[in-house]
């Protein structure tokens, strides 16, 4: 009898935990604080598009409207394909970005060169050097905070016209290119 009474008392005592425990848990909002000891640099990049590919390489009315600036309007940046971000506590960094051509997945002998545009500050976009398909620029850390760039744009402008691809019977299918980002310090 005593044991049964004890069990009932324990159940009653644990009732507030059952009733209010969930509520208390749901109100917990942990704040994560990170500290860094020593030098730290992280560079990251991701594609912007959600489908299987960034754009179509076909000469048509629609695409001329969409990608016309890839061919003729050289003062434009090109089509945005992704973004890159950087966090570092280094005083100065050299960012080197290089890429290969767009290469046909079905036949690697078919390649399409392109010019890569990289946003390097709020209003300036750097383009890679034709021929080397790479670029390099320096970034400096603000005096009282880490260097932090977030979602800066990556743009592609084709070196060939879309009609050129049609005329030369470039094969259909996917074309891939890899962009490499390197952050280094002196």
């Amino acid at each position: 009898m005593k044991r049964k009474t004890l069990v009932i008392i324990l159940m009653i005592l644990s009732l507030p935990v059952v009733l209010f425990g969930v509520v208390s848990q749901s109100n917990l909002e942990p704040l994560k604080v990170n500290g860094v000891l020593g030098q730290f640099t992280n560079i990251a990049a991701s594609v912007d598009y959600s489908g299987a590919y960034a754009f179509q390489l076909v000469d048509s009315t629609d695409n001329n409207n969409n990608y016309g600036y890839l061919e003729s309007e050289t003062n434009k940046t090109g089509i945005r394909i992704g973004s890159w971000s950087l966090v570092s506590n280094m005083d100065s960094l050299t960012i080197t970005i290089s890429h290969d051509d767009l290469v046909s997945a079905s036949d690697s002998t078919w390649t399409i060169p392109y010019t890569l545009g990289v946003q390097k500050n709020a209003s300036d976009i750097a383009f890679d050097d034709t021929g080397t398909s790479s670029m390099s620029f320096n970034l400096s850390k603000p005096s009282n905070s880490p260097l932090s760039l977030s979602n800066y744009g990556l743009f592609v402008r084709l070196d060939y016209t879309l009609s050129y691809l049609d005329t030369n019977s470039y094969p259909g299918g996917y074309y891939y290119s890899t962009i490499t980002f390197v952050a280094s310090s002196s």
Binding site: Y53, Q56, T94, I112, V156, Y174, Y175, F181, S184
Partner: peptide, 23 residues
């Protein structure tokens, strides 16, 4: 060896060319 690589990242993107071979 005055330049030290701090971090490296790669990103691959794709374009597509439709054609009668694989519509």
């Amino acid at each position: 060896a005055d330049t030290v690589e701090q971090d490296r990242q790669t990103m691959q993107f794709a374009a597509f060319r439709p054609g009668d071979t694989n519509p």
